[in-house]
């Protein structure tokens, strides 16, 4: 293989009249973990499935390990590990049975017995897939993605609907892949997850790349010049604004934004106003902004630019972006 593990150049994917991906370009190298972050219908799964060879680009070029996913598909399958968003396993098969089956497809597979232990299913060997919990299925799917010792791994929503233990385990496996020099492309609509797992985040929405970079950089890209806090709903923001001398808005019920830099004097004035009005303070946050805010800001701006951009959901089953507020 020469150069990047994943290379996407000017990718456009169209379903009939609907534009799912528009002029998307990015690359990822060996040992790098890249997260595609975006709401449902953003085009994350379409992008991954084009790289896996399930979909043909309408325009543009994609290469995985230097191979064309469709023309060189047989060779490609020896280098990639795939975790679909859901399903993918015989409903009556047992964990070790399916890992052994998949191991037989590859030249130099992982040891199935060790792998089933590694993903924490060593005590679930007699349970068929259909009786495994959502988290157990995710872990088994991960094992199947890893059994062939792939160079490039695609994980579509690997931590969706998973319990905290499973989440931890998947994080650990992913960072071990990085250490082994494997390239990982994962999709998520969970900002927390992208921030924790990825070396680089690509924010996409409506098929277009909005921003990319390491999570920390993305977060500091937009200077934060406000104070946010939570308290009970329906505070008199006009009175508060008069008292503080800057504008205050209630962005959503119980969440307020004070539009000025968090000078100590202003923070003191705010808390004293709240004290005077006998209002208990919830979160108070200044300076550091979360990836979620970057994300919301970017996607809202994008939709203002382009309000009637039709998009087709990737999958019939839709999930919403779960607001997972970070506490400071």
């Amino acid at each position: 293989m020469n150069g990047a593990a994943i290379e996407v150049t000017g990718l456009t994917v169209r379903y009939g009249d609907v534009l799912a991906i528009e002029e998307l370009s990015f690359s990822a190298s060996a040992g790098e973990i890249v997260a595609l972050l975006g709401p449902n219908g953003a085009g994350k799964t379409t992008t991954v499935e084009t790289l896996e060879g399930y979909r043909r680009p309408t325009k543009g070029k994609v290469r995985v390990w230097g191979l064309d996913p469709i023309d060189d598909h047989a060779e490609l399958t020896r280098h990639i590990g795939v975790m679909l968003q859901e399903g993918g396993v015989y409903s009556s098969i047992r964990p070790l049975e399916v890992i052994r089956l998949f191991a037989a497809y590859y030249d130099n597979p992982e040891d199935p017995e060790a792998l089933v232990e590694r993903v924490g299913l060593g005590d679930r060997l007699s349970v068929p897939w259909r009786h495994l919990s959502g988290g157990e299925r995710q872990r088994l799917s991960l094992a199947l993605a890893l059994v062939g010792r792939p160079e490039v791994v695609f994980l579509d929503e690997p931590t969706a609907g998973i319990d905290p233990v499973g989440r931890q385990l998947i994080r650990k496996e992913v960072s071990e892949l990085r250490d082994r020099g494997t390239c990982v492309l994962l999709t998520t609509h969970d900002l927390d997850e992208a921030e924790k797992l990825a070396d680089r985040v690509l924010i996409i929405d409506r098929g277009r790349l909005l921003a990319s970079g390491p999570p920390q950089e993305l977060m500091s890209a937009i200077i934060n010049d406000d104070i946010q806090f939570t308290a009970r709903e329906g505070l008199d923001t006009k009175a508060m604004a008069r008292a503080l001398g800057v504008s205050v808005e209630e962005r959503s019920p119980g969440t307020y934004r004070v539009a000025a830099a968090p000078e100590p004097r202003l923070v003191a004035a705010l808390t004293s106003w709240l004290a005077q009005h006998n209002v208990a303070l919830g979160d108070l946050r200044a300076a550091r902004q979360s990836l979620e805010e970057v994300f919301i800001r970017l996607t809202t701006e994008a939709s203002k630019d382009n309000p009637v951009h039709e998009i087709r959901p990737e999958r019939p089953r839709r999930r919403s972006v779960r607001p997972r507020r970070k506490r400071t």
């Binding site: 020896r78 399903g87 015989y90």
Partner: peptide
């Protein structure tokens, strides 16, 4: 039919089985 429904065939398509 059920293997197709549960994406088993799709998943196998990404393996060297062929």
């Amino acid at each position: 039919g059920f293997e197709r429904h549960y994406h088993v065939l799709k998943r196998l398509g990404a393996t060297p089985l062929g």
